[in-house]
């Protein structure tokens, strides 16, 4: 029984982790083929990402669009979460409706967006892609910020009021600092969602808005090369760096303040 557990556990962990473990080293292959064995190592595929117009542009696009979508989704999602904090008539339905982009198959949304964006003149524009990414990133921000708001004891805010803080100062001194971790992780999730988005991009982006994910998608389809592994490496490192920065930021915010009272 115990042996069976260990074997199953090992197999399952291997299944889950194998893809991540196998793709990363291929970023450093010197071969033209995206396959093992790696005969010698080189950085040529990272150079390729930098030199080739298609890859370079897609990385820049991903950063620009990701930043835009993150900003927009974080602002809108934070406002919504604050508005939905206390329940009112239909607030439950409203929240479920705002989370729908998580559920609706991306292809359906893509078709609808393509038609609508043509009418709105947003198709083949950076703004259009940012908006499309914001729609799918928004639910993640809402879930994350609502979660952190739900964790705030309302009595703490009431305490601030009774101690003389007007509503604006209650928000600034108490609510905002306490919800900030949720906002930050919402922003990270939004960025990761945008970075990974392919389907909507296929529908609403033109050749000038090609993102990294979109570029990987077509290069897996059309001309597979270790540049994909290099791009995967960049994405993973990027995600880890952003997540790490957030963790650092949070740790810094948690650290004790100097002993004199800050006024």
């Amino acid at each position: 029984m115990k042996a069976a557990k260990i074997v199953f556990g090992l197999l399952a962990v291997t299944f889950l982790m194998a893809p991540l473990v196998t793709i990363l080293p291929l970023a450093f292959t010197s071969s033209d083929l995206l396959s093992y064995p790696i005969r010698s190592f080189s950085l040529r595929w990272f150079e390729e990402l930098m030199i080739s117009d298609a890859w370079r542009m897609s990385i820049v696009n991903s950063l620009v669009i990701g930043a835009g979508a993150t900003l927009l989704a974080t602002v809108l999602g934070t406002l919504v979460s604050l508005g939905l904090r206390r329940s009112f008539a239909f607030s439950g339905i409203l929240k479920s409706a705002l989370l729908l982009p998580m559920v609706v198959p991306a292809v359906i949304l893509g078709v609808g967006m393509q038609i609508t964006f043509i009418q709105l003149g947003l198709v083949n524009t950076h703004v259009g892609v940012i908006i499309a990414h914001t729609v799918v990133a928004l639910p993640f921000v809402i879930v994350s910020v609502s979660g952190s708001l739900a964790g705030i004891d309302m009595r703490v805010e009431r305490a601030a009021m009774s101690l003389g803080a007007n509503p604006l100062r209650v928000f600034g001194h108490v609510t905002l600092p306490l919800m900030l971790p949720g906002v930050l992780s919402g922003a990270v999730l939004a960025f990761a969602t945008s970075l990974d988005e392919v389907v909507l991009t296929l529908f609403v982006a033109g050749p000038n808005q090609r993102t990294l994910a979109r570029q990987m998608f077509s290069s897996i389809r059309e001309n597979i090369s270790p540049a994909i592994a290099a791009a995967a490496f960049v994405i993973i490192v990027g995600t880890v760096v952003v997540a790490g920065l957030v963790l650092l930021f949070r740790a810094a915010a948690q650290r004790q303040k100097p002993s004199t009272v800050t006024v």
Binding site: R155, V156, R158, A159, M161, S162, L163, G164, A165, N166
Partner: peptide
């Protein structure tokens, strides 16, 4: 509340 000048001690303290 912020203009009533009353000190409130809450059940679970409600410290920041």
């Amino acid at each position: 509340p912020h203009r009533r000048d009353m000190g409130v001690v809450f059940q679970n303290y409600a410290l920041f």
